[in-house]
């Protein structure tokens, strides 16, 4: 398997009863990337993350973590992973610090790490408060501390900014950038909000109804949203012929509508006069740029 990927799945499928929740999913998460795993609610993000953690069964040779097959190297794979899945799983009767110490026991690491983590996520003042009494945001921070405590190479964070206030969101975002940038960690972060991922992700995977609809670098996603010129005309076939001679890149055409790639204002004016001079009536001509949010909606509404 390709070892430049931290996570690689090969046509991964998962069913709950008769319902297929993950369909032929081939994720490729490069090492050192922040991979934004996007999709609307119920798209299969959490299920995929649970499969990556071997919490849900997967067939052999479909999931590879740092090049190792998951089912046959479960412990070795999990050793390299830290995770936060859905709402953080915290023992409510223990304090925040005790939750972290318990994790230290399970991982066989120094218990002093617990205090360090509390400082990192800004929970030092609430260290001795029962975790059950934490606010949602505090629980989320504790969950992130639990995921980070073993200093794993790969972090799987399922909607980590859920329930955080704007300040908290910025802190977690900066933490992720620092972890990937300075410490070379790979982070897979799921979200249903593109705007949140757009600022930090280097790579993006968009999933809907269990199918991966887009996967690539964030700029490739931006490229998909290049501006176009929309021209409304009386005779689109004639317009197409005329524009064809200029070498304009035709993107789409419909009855009374032609879409071509936007290359600059001057060209846009040129196309306009060319059409008018050749007897095509132009009702309207304007540029259109899809923002990523619309692009995301477009992509996810296609299947």
């Amino acid at each position: 398997m390709n070892t430049s990927f931290a996570i690689e799945t090969v046509e991964l499928n998962h069913r709950f009863g008769s319902q297929t929740v993950v369909k032929d999913l081939s994720l490729q998460v490069p090492k050192g990337s922040i991979y934004g795993f996007l999709g609307p609610n119920g798209a299969g993000k959490t299920t995929t993350i649970k499969i990556l953690l071997n919490l849900l069964q997967s067939s052999s040779d479909t999931v590879f973590i740092f090049g190792k097959e998951l089912n046959s190297n479960r412990t070795a794979c999990l050793k390299q992973m830290g995770s936060l899945v859905e709402q953080p799983a915290i023992y409510a009767h223990l304090t925040g610090k005790e939750n972290l110490i318990n994790r230290c026991i399970l991982l066989g690491i120094d218990k002093r790490k617990a205090t360090e983590m509390l400082t990192l996520v800004g929970l030092s003042n609430a260290a001795n408060k029962k975790a059950g009494k934490y606010s949602l945001g505090m629980k989320q921070r504790l969950g992130i501390a639990l995921a980070l405590i073993a200093d794993p190479e790969l972090l799987l964070l399922d909607e980590p900014t859920n329930g955080l206030d704007p300040n908290g969101i910025i802190e977690i975002r900066n933490l992720m950038i620092e972890l990937a940038g300075k410490h070379g960690k790979t982070i897979l972060v799921s979200s249903h909000l593109l705007a949140e991922i757009e600022r930090i992700a280097t790579h993006v995977g968009i999933i809907n109804k269990g199918e991966l609809l887009f996967q690539g670098k964030i700029n490739e996603l931006h490229d998909l949203s290049k501006p176009v010129i929309k021209i409304e005309v009386d005779d689109s076939a004639a317009a197409l012929n005329i524009l064809g001679t200029t070498g304009a890149e035709i993107i789409d055409m419909d009855e009374g509508l032609v879409k071509i790639a936007y290359t600059g204002k001057a060209e846009m004016g040129k196309y306009n006069s060319l059409l008018v001079n050749n007897g095509v009536t132009v009702y309207a001509i304007h540029t259109e740029k899809k923002d990523l949010e619309h692009l995301f909606l477009d992509i996810t509404s296609k299947n």
Binding site: L53, A76, M81, I90, L106, L107
Partner: peptide, 17 residues
């Protein structure tokens, strides 16, 4: 203790057999 806190998932995602 695991059911109530929904911690089966974290327990079984630790690198322990």
């Amino acid at each position: 203790i695991e059911h109530k806190n929904d911690t089966w998932k974290t327990l079984f995602s630790q690198p322990l057999n």
